[in-house]
Design a protein around this nucleic acid. Sequence first.
DNA 1: ATGGTCGCGTAGCGA
Length: 262
Amino acid sequence: MPLSIATWNVNSILARLPTALAVLKHVDADIVCLQEIKCEDARFPRLEIESMGYNVATHGQKTYNGVAILSKHRIEEEAPGLPEGEGDDHARYLECVIAAPGGPVRVASVYAPNGNPVGTEKFSYKLAWHDRLIAHAERLLALEEFCVIAGDYNIIPRDVDADDPASWRGDALFQPESIGKYRALANLGYVECFMQADGRPRQFTFWDYQAGAWRRDHGIRIDHLFASPQAADRLTGVSIHRDARAMDKPSDHVPIIGAFDW
DNA sequence: ATGGTCGCGTAGCGA
């Protein structure tokens, strides 16, 4: 059976609610990973999302960060936060096991730190956070499950994943150390779905609100779906819902959807 | 041109 898994940095679910509901309806994914919901669990618009046929798991935070997973199938387990998180109060990781018709699937919604400016504790936090993600992803790989770790990685993997790579050269999203974290996940055995299904240049998922970035197509590809071998073997395609950036009150990110046969 | 624009929350930070 087809199983679609989307990821979308919504940039505040409350500020975005009418837009988000329209986008979610159009994307119509079985599972949706959301980032930057920017609200505590109790304030998440659960009823509105549930009325679309989704079960909801949240790992919320006031003002900043916050991730969620929406699923048309039953959510069997919820695990907020990465291991080794003592002293880290950012809500950036939520993992669920979902009872898909083809069998259980493990899905994680990740919101990696931005890390700017380079050379500060923000950048070292970004790298250390990725190291914790990579260590956890390695443990998940040993389970030999259908597993997808999807979200806003805040990493531009290649020059061709930016409209103007030179303008990102000094940015935390485009540092060799950051790209090394993306490659480390792939080197573990995870497959980045976009690269497996398409890989073509200039397919962007983020356009800044500033300086007419959308109008000029000054975009970058920073939202990724990493699939375990058991999931990657079932990948049938990837699509980017570019139209979402042209809506009223858009997020600065658009959804990217992996299609699987499971 | 080192700007611009959002969201949160109501000043200034984060992105």
